[in-house]
Lab assay of single mutants.
Amino acid sequence: TGEEYIAVGDSTAQQVGDLTFKKGEILLVIEKKPDGWWIAKDAKGNEGLVPRTYLEPYS
């Protein structure tokens, strides 16, 4: 379980453990880390770190 967020920009994984996503994708945020990198899952079930500045709450 988690909260749904929509990507407001494209982000390409810079290192192992990062999640690549495109603008408009809905991501499920699993954990919000205080350093600004959140753990999220995409629609295909891929999981990784995403920069919170690229996400907005999805409603």
Rank of each mutant, 00 (worst) to 15 (best):
T1D: 11
T1W: 12
T1H: 13
G2N: 08
G2F: 13
G2T: 08
G2C: 14
E3A: 08
E3S: 08
E3R: 08
E4D: 06
Y5M: 05
Y5W: 13
Y5V: 02
Y5F: 09
I6M: 08
I6N: 02
I6W: 05
I6C: 07
A7F: 09
A7C: 11
A7H: 02
V8N: 09
V8A: 06
V8H: 04
V8Y: 04
G9L: 15
G9W: 15
D10L: 03
D10M: 04
S11H: 15
S11A: 10
T12K: 12
T12Y: 12
A13V: 08
Q14G: 11
Q14C: 14
Q14D: 10
Q14H: 12
Q14N: 12
Q14F: 11
Q14M: 12
Q15S: 12
Q15V: 10
Q15W: 11
Q15T: 11
Q15F: 11
V16L: 12
V16I: 12
V16K: 12
G17S: 07
D18V: 14
D18H: 15
D18C: 15
D18N: 14
D18P: 05
L19T: 01
L19V: 03
T20E: 11
T20F: 08
T20N: 10
T20V: 12
T20R: 09
F21I: 08
F21E: 01
K22Y: 09
K22R: 11
K22Q: 08
K22W: 06
K23F: 05
G24F: 04
G24Y: 04
E25Q: 11
I26T: 05
I26L: 07
I26A: 03
L27W: 01
L27R: 00
L28P: 00
V29I: 11
V29P: 00
V29N: 00
I30L: 11
I30H: 03
E31Q: 10
E31N: 09
K32M: 07
K32A: 05
K32Q: 06
K32H: 04
K33N: 11
K33V: 06
K33L: 12
K33I: 06
P34T: 11
P34C: 11
D35R: 01
D35Y: 03
D35L: 03
G36R: 02
W37L: 10
W37Q: 09
W37P: 05
W37C: 12
W37A: 07
W38A: 02
W38E: 01
I39P: 02
A40L: 04
A40N: 00
K41L: 11
K41T: 08
K41M: 12
D42C: 03
D42I: 02
D42T: 05
A43S: 14
A43W: 09
A43M: 11
K44R: 13
G45H: 03
G45Y: 02
N46Q: 08
N46P: 00
N46A: 07
N46H: 08
E47G: 04
E47I: 15
G48I: 03
G48A: 03
G48Q: 02
G48T: 02
G48N: 01
L49P: 06
L49D: 03
L49V: 10
L49G: 06
V50I: 07
V50F: 01
V50S: 01
P51N: 15
P51R: 12
P51A: 11
T53D: 15
T53F: 12
Y54K: 15
Y54N: 09
Y54F: 13
L55F: 05
L55N: 00
E56K: 08
E56C: 11
E56R: 07
E56F: 06
E56N: 05
P57Q: 07
P57S: 07
Y58T: 08
S59M: 13
S59I: 13
